[in-house]
């Protein structure tokens, strides 16, 4: 898991992607994506994947970034009533997975509603 993650860590740490701002095509080269966007749709998980049990209820959203790229991400530090379609969201960096007490900690983007 740690090595797979290592290969794409910039995507998670820096919210990098490969969508072209001009034509929408997916280039091969990653570049920094805008760190703000709006919620297109959202849901709440009560039976999440293993490793996320302590974060129940887990809020997930599809966010359209300012350049049109879309990302699926967790919404954190936001009162439930503010998580709604159209809400402005900003990327933050958080722990994404923790491999027990002795394994590695994986970091990545999540979003907060402004």
């Amino acid at each position: 898991m740690a090595i797979q993650f290592w290969r794409i860590r910039d995507r998670y740490y820096r919210l990098m992607g490969n969508r072209c701002d001009d034509c929408g095509a997916r280039n091969l080269a990653d570049k920094d994506m805008p760190r703000t966007g709006k919620i297109l749709t959202h849901t709440q998980l009560h039976e999440p994947l293993p490793g996320f049990e302590s974060e129940v209820p887990l809020n997930l959203a599809v966010i359209e970034l300012q350049n049109g790229a879309r990302v699926l991400a967790q919404i954190v530090d936001t009162p439930q009533e503010k998580i709604e379609t159209g809400a402005k969201a900003r990327a933050v960096i958080r722990r994404v997975r923790v491999d027990g007490d002795s394994g590695q900690i994986l970091y990545g983007y999540k979003f907060v509603v402004e």
């Binding site: 974060e55 954190v76 530090d77 933050v92 960096i93 958080r94 722990r95 970091y107």
Partner: peptide, 13 residues
């Protein structure tokens, strides 16, 4: 700090 925050995440912010 939230459950998913630590010294690394806050330093980066």
């Amino acid at each position: 700090a939230s459950i998913d925050e630590d010294t690394v995440t806050m330093a980066i912010e």
